[in-house]
Design a protein around this nucleic acid. Structure first.
Lengths: 152, 152
DNA sequence: TTTGATGCAAAACGTTTGCACCAAG
DNA sequence: CTTGGTGCAAACGTTTTGCATCAAA
């Protein structure tokens, strides 16, 4: 029987992250486990600086370049996806098997996910896409979210 | 009767550009006429540096900041659109009234346009988009173009 | 013991800005 | 004349890199 703990599953999820890292062929350092955890638990759409800010709470000595290096490494190993919601930053989210896309509010910046098989629609309806080997579909709708529309 | 010229329509297109600029409320400087011309004739998908390189051929003293300022101004006045094909640069293309999207080859970087009313499809099929006021639809398919697939 | 990961500082990158000047209106 | 546009250099914010050190395997 494992020891009793009143803490949430922080240690557990970090040890899962360690396993994920090893399984992916990366070293299971504290920093990378923390960074991976933040992205997996973080609800997606975090930019590098936000990851850095959250990571420092758990691991105060972590450096920004470690965050960048980890994110790039995770991206290359298909653990996370890099998105481009605005022109200034990259945003990162956990790789998901379900095709989903994003609505970006131009006023408040909020990002809303939705699922839709747009790539299927495109493959069926776009002749130019026939000869292309499509590996990624990024759909980004911009506009104004219900809240911002109401406020104005 | 206008004077005879064996040149192509360079002067003509530049003077059209001047008219466009004035009609838009901008000053018709040589630099801006050249920049606008490059984008209008350039087949789209140029980044700021490429515009700069081409502009220097016609107007050697032009500066990079002038290019950036012109592009921003054109964008704000809806003469051009700013696109995000990759993470590093902005790309600019002439504003078109027809909805079109892009296939980006991950190998050679070539960008292929296609037309498709994806926004219509999304408005019909995505509940989250119902309450959103959509002003822009950017679809970016990544993959490998027929040429690169053949070579490999 | 090997090699990937780290922290720091410095550099690189695309882009923007302050300023004095110029030129279109 | 007025005001928007220009060129230059310097600044900006984000991301990358060189290097010596560290620690996972």
């Amino acid at each position: 029987m494992p020891s009793i703990s009143n803490k949430p599953d922080k240690l557990d999820s970090l040890s899962v992250d360690r396993k994920t890292l090893k399984a992916t062929g990366l070293r299971a350092t504290d920093q990378r486990a923390v960074i991976l955890d933040i992205i997996l638990q973080g609800g997606g759409h975090l930019d590098a600086d936000e990851v850095y800010r959250r990571a420092r709470q758990k691991h105060p000595l972590i450096s920004l370049s470690t965050v960048y290096r980890a994110l790039r490494s995770f991206k290359n190993h298909d653990l996370v996806e890099e998105m481009h919601f605005d022109e200034e930053h990259h945003h990162y989210e956990a790789k998901s098997n379900k095709e989903h896309h994003h609505l970006v509010c131009l006023k408040c910046g909020k990002v809303t996910e939705f699922q839709s098989s747009i790539s299927g629609y495109i493959k069926k309806n776009v002749p130019q896409a026939k000869d292309f080997e499509i590996v990624g579909t990024e759909v980004r709708l911009t506009g104004y979210c219900p809240e911002c529309r109401a406020k104005q």
